[in-house]
């Protein structure tokens, strides 16, 4: 049986992990490779690395980091942040990433989704969507959630699927950082509307939140950052819990 995936997200700035705790047996929690290896050992199913500075100057730092991650990590990983062109994608994929995640650049130029899918395959293209519930409607935001667009989330998800997206990473800005649970309504609506995997993101605070999102929506995966970084929910505990609750997960 296909398993529901648990995906820790690591924020990267200048080649370093932005936030993280000092795991006892990790020498340097700021080293993305060390932290990533730790997550792999704990049973993470995939990893997402988000370059939150993503300036032109540090692209080289990022591709060197991606090469290093690829040498050390034996599970799939996605790289996102500041990817604007097919050339950017090519650098990241050739460095060894399995997938790239694009967000604002896909809104700005939707054909980019098709171009990446045609050159590298749909499975490479994760379209990240930041969405917020305003005036009774779910709207797409860009530029790290700072700028609203005119796009309705339900229209945009169907469009990105048609353009060739392989997965949708859906972050509810209303829930992000609140630790009150995932946005079940929009996650369910989106995962019902498209025939590609949806990764739920934003709001995870307890193990029960993961059970909710997997039992009440069709999400294929759930992503979280701080609860894993700060050790609030160890991944093995989360997976054992989900297995007890009859959610299909990969236990080690």
């Amino acid at each position: 049986m296909l398993k529901k995936r648990i995906i820790p997200c690591l924020d990267i700035r200048d080649g370093r992990t932005v936030k993280g705790i000092n795991f006892i047996d990790i020498r340097d929690a700021g080293d993305p490779v060390e932290l990533a290896k730790r997550y792999v050992q704990e049973g993470a199913d995939e990893l997402v690395f988000l370059d939150i500075t993503a300036t032109h100057e540090n692209r080289k730092t990022l591709s060197a980091l991606v090469e290093k991650i690829s040498r050390e990590i034996n599970i799939p990983f996605t790289v996102g942040g500041g990817i604007n062109s097919l050339a950017d994608v090519s650098v990241i994929i050739k460095a060894g990433a399995d997938k790239v995640s694009i967000n604002s650049s896909a809104v700005k130029r939707p054909e980019l989704i098709t171009e990446i899918a045609e050159q590298f395959g749909s499975q490479c293209v994760v379209v990240a969507i930041d969405t917020k519930f305003v005036n009774n409607e779910w709207i797409v935001y860009v530029h790290g959630g700072r700028i609203p667009t005119l796009l309705k989330t339900m229209d945009w998800v169907k469009q990105v699927e048609e353009l060739g997206a392989g997965e949708i990473l859906l972050t509810s800005m209303n829930n992000d950082g609140m630790k009150t649970g995932f946005a079940l309504d929009i996650t369910n609506a989106v995962s019902q509307a498209v025939n590609i995997p949806v990764i739920a993101s934003g709001g995870a605070g307890t193990k029960e939140h993961f059970k909710e999102v997997f039992s009440q929506t069709k999400a294929s995966a759930a992503l979280a950052a701080s609860i894993f970084h700060f050790g609030e929910i160890p991944i093995p505990d989360l997976k054992n819990y989900l297995q007890t609750e009859k959610i299909p997960v990969r236990c080690l």
Binding site: M1, K3, R5, G166, N195, P197, R250
Partner: peptide, 13 residues
């Protein structure tokens, strides 16, 4: 056949 999500993506036994 498109009875479930295609591609088959992820961990399976």
């Amino acid at each position: 056949p498109p009875e479930e999500l295609v591609p088959h993506m992820g961990w399976n036994n």
